[in-house]
Design a protein around this nucleic acid. Structure first.
Lengths: 190, 190
DNA sequence: CTGATTTCTTGAACTACATTAAGTTTTTTT
DNA sequence: AAAAAAACTTAATGTAGTTCAAGAAATCAG
């Protein structure tokens, strides 16, 4: 499992064994219990996280005190507050383990010096972010096009089984509506 | 104006004059009239576009026949359907000039071979996409947090003057509501 | 300058989803 | 296994924003 990041890098952008070796001194690993928090909204974000096993989510607390999930990240996904990493401004959301989770992590300045020392990693991260941005473009389209109920069905079709992995209230807020409404949608199916 | 892309590249990731010179054979330029279309929803997207002057938008036609704007791109922004470029699947939206616009463009396979020939550009595009993704994370947060009216005020504050540059119906759909509702918001201010 | 097209406004009826509140089921902790 | 906490359901009432329709204003093409 701990090799999953190197496998991912090699598969997307093979930078060669010498470059890969440069990861060892800077990669950190962390085991998280369910609900454990990696980043708190308002703190400056210092790490890039890569999910080796389990599931992370980003969320914030809205003005009514409810948690609003912005993103889920499962195995092989990078997650962080990239704006906060860039500007060193306070993070606009928190990051938390949804279930027992193992992550690999790179600290901001280690990331930057890695890229200078081993530019071959630029290609890997360019591909990672280009894909992430492409996915995000599509996601915004779905947020505009689909009704709440349609987003639920679409999500279910695209990530079959994932629904069982997270509490419904997290999924409801990710899909942009209340847990009560999700309950209603599910009742309608029966 | 035609040097704006090279300036942008140099500012973000100075790849050196030799690398920059490799752009000349592959960069294309195009002048667009207001409303001219660069990409049609359903076609395969073949280009990366960089706005030198003017304004592009991406949009699609929803099931009620209304145009839904997804994104605006002004000077110094890259725009394309990155998913379609990646997968060669049909584009999920169209791209059109909002006003008289000049773009620099790179064809997909030229982009890919440029990156292989001159890996220094990987850094530039890595930074471009990392920033774009960071901005997109924030945008999704605003879509969840703010009411329609709040999104309008927030947009006005962050892009003062831009409101005058586009027809209201484009702005309304970008903000996620109907032109009628935007009209109402504006009436309330008076 | 003029007609045609596009864009903007206003009003009335409507709907998808939110809110509140109370009860039920499931999961976690001890 | 019991108690406590977390998660889910159901129903009644409320509202932000939509839809439809028709007219007014602005912009564009000849």
């Amino acid at each position: 499992m701990y090799g999953a990041l190197k496998t991912h890098i090699t598969r997307l952008a093979d930078p060669g064994a010498d470059a890969i070796a440069l990861l060892d001194p800077i990669l950190e690993y962390r085991q998280l219990k369910k609900k454990e928090v990696l980043l708190k909204e308002g703190d400056t974000c210092r790490y890039y996280w890569f999910v080796l096993d389990g599931c992370l989510r980003s969320y914030f607390v809205n003005d009514k005190g409810a948690e609003q999930t912005l993103q889920f990240a499962i195995e092989q996904w990078w997650l962080s507050d990239f704006m906060s990493l860039q500007t060193k401004n306070p993070a606009s959301f928190s990051v938390q383990a949804v279930e027992k989770t193992t992550v690999a992590m790179i600290e901001r300045s280690a990331y930057e010096s890695l890229l200078v020392k081993a530019p071959a990693f630029e290609r890997y991260f360019r591909i990672v972010f280009q894909k992430a941005y492409a996915a995000s473009q599509l996601r915004v389209k779905y947020l505009y096009t689909l009704s709440g109920e349609e987003r639920y069905h679409h999500f279910n079709k695209n990530f079959p089984g994932f629904v069982q992995r997270v509490p419904q209230y997290m999924l409801a807020s990710y899909l942009g509506f209340t847990p009560e409404f999700l309950s209603r949608i599910r009742a309608r199916q029966l």
